[in-house]
């Protein structure tokens, strides 16, 4: 349940932004979550609802924008989609691909009033 810690971090980032940008209510929170990150989107959704209680993001809709995993082979240089963080290069099968995309866990932006 590290998603709870991550959701609490998200709320802290949002509340900081609220003080900086002078908003009091958040309607929509958009987060980018990579397929190769350690986040289970449904667990994050549940945790977010819990962690947002009493904050300016209470009741906000959470939109999770998935980012597919992508890796590069150190040996032959091709880029390929990755389903797990240890997928082998589909061309030369020599080594696991090096992850270049898909580990993101970011608060992207908000709709606020």
């Amino acid at each position: 349940m590290h998603e709870l810690s991550l959701a609490e971090s998200a709320i802290a980032l949002i509340e900081d932004a609220g003080r900086r940008e002078s908003f009091h209510r958040v309607r929509v929170v958009r987060m980018e979550i990579g397929a190769l990150s350690c986040v289970e989107p449904e667990a994050l959704r549940f945790a977010f609802e819990s962690a947002s209680h009493g904050s300016c993001a209470e009741g906000a809709r959470l939109d999770i924008l998935p980012i597919p995993g992508e890796g590069e082979c150190a040996a032959c240089g091709i880029r390929a989609e990755m389903e797990t963080a240890y997928d082998l290069c589909p061309q030369c099968e020599s080594r696991p691909l090096k992850v270049v995309r898909g580990t993101e866990m970011r608060v992207k932006d908000l709709d606020v009033e």
Binding site: A12, L13, A17, V107, D109
Partner: peptide
């Protein structure tokens, strides 16, 4: 309500504080 909405960019990692 939508008329009063504005978008705020955050672009911060969830682990930024840690």
């Amino acid at each position: 309500a939508a008329a009063h909405l504005r978008q705020v960019s955050i672009e911060q990692d969830l682990l930024a504080r840690n």
